[in-house]
Design a binder for these strands. Structure first.
Lengths: 112, 112
DNA sequence: CCTTCATGCGTAGCTACGCTACTTGTCGGA
DNA sequence: TCCGACAAGTAGCGTAGCTACGCATGAAGG
């Protein structure tokens, strides 16, 4: 799908992925791809700046580690991030309902 | 709701509104507000450029008229626009499913 | 040995697009 | 007379995702 349609919802996706456990950037990209059956194949130039943004906002915290000679920056959700995720979920529901009122096929009141 | 979250879906909303009949810009804004119960209160600086964009793309056509001394530019959906709307609807469904897989609460498999 | 690919991080610059703030103009009502 | 609803529009801004890079390590294959 057109990834640019994510606009405004990427942060929520990242928080949702990290909700299930801390991951490093590259693994986050793979997790998004896996959990979306390949629909979301986001480039590093999208993910890394977004993670920095979330860290600046205090929603995630990062720690460096070295795994077999490679540097990894592992991100984990903070309490603030968990609250933000709850808000994003609520926002998503509202967004979904509002846009759906225009784009979803209307359920026929008299099906038979 | 935060209107900037519309990013990428505004065109679809406009096409959906015009699907039910031709309207002029100002009336489109009111239709969006009405059909969304006030959630979508979009400024003219958002709507008018978007309509021009859709017209350049051939998805809508406009005609001027004067109603009680006021100039109106009425937009109507073209065939191309109808096709585009169908595509937007399909895209919306996919987007909804994909993002929902991360943000919607998972239906518990064993409720009891 | 050397090249290639997957892993892993990152930035610079571009572009799309919605928003803010503004202008212009008519009409009706206080 | 002046203000607010109606009606259209633009200029400039900011956000944020994308493209296209660069750098480095380790494993695999010729």
């Amino acid at each position: 799908m057109k990834a640019q349609a994510l606009h405004g919802h990427l942060d929520a996706l990242l928080l949702a992925v990290l909700e299930q456990g801390a991951l490093h950037g590259y693994a986050i990209i793979e997790a998004l791809r896996a959990r979306s059956d390949g629909s979301l194949d986001l480039p590093t130039g999208t993910i890394y700046p977004a993670l920095r943004r979330l860290e600046r906002a205090g929603h995630v915290a990062s720690t460096w580690s070295t795994v077999s000679g490679r540097e990894r920056r592992t991100y984990q959700l903070t309490d603030s991030g968990r609250r933000a995720l709850a808000g994003e979920r609520a926002g998503w529901r509202e967004f979904q309902l509002t846009v759906g009122r225009f784009l979803d096929p209307e359920s026929p009141p008299t099906p038979s």
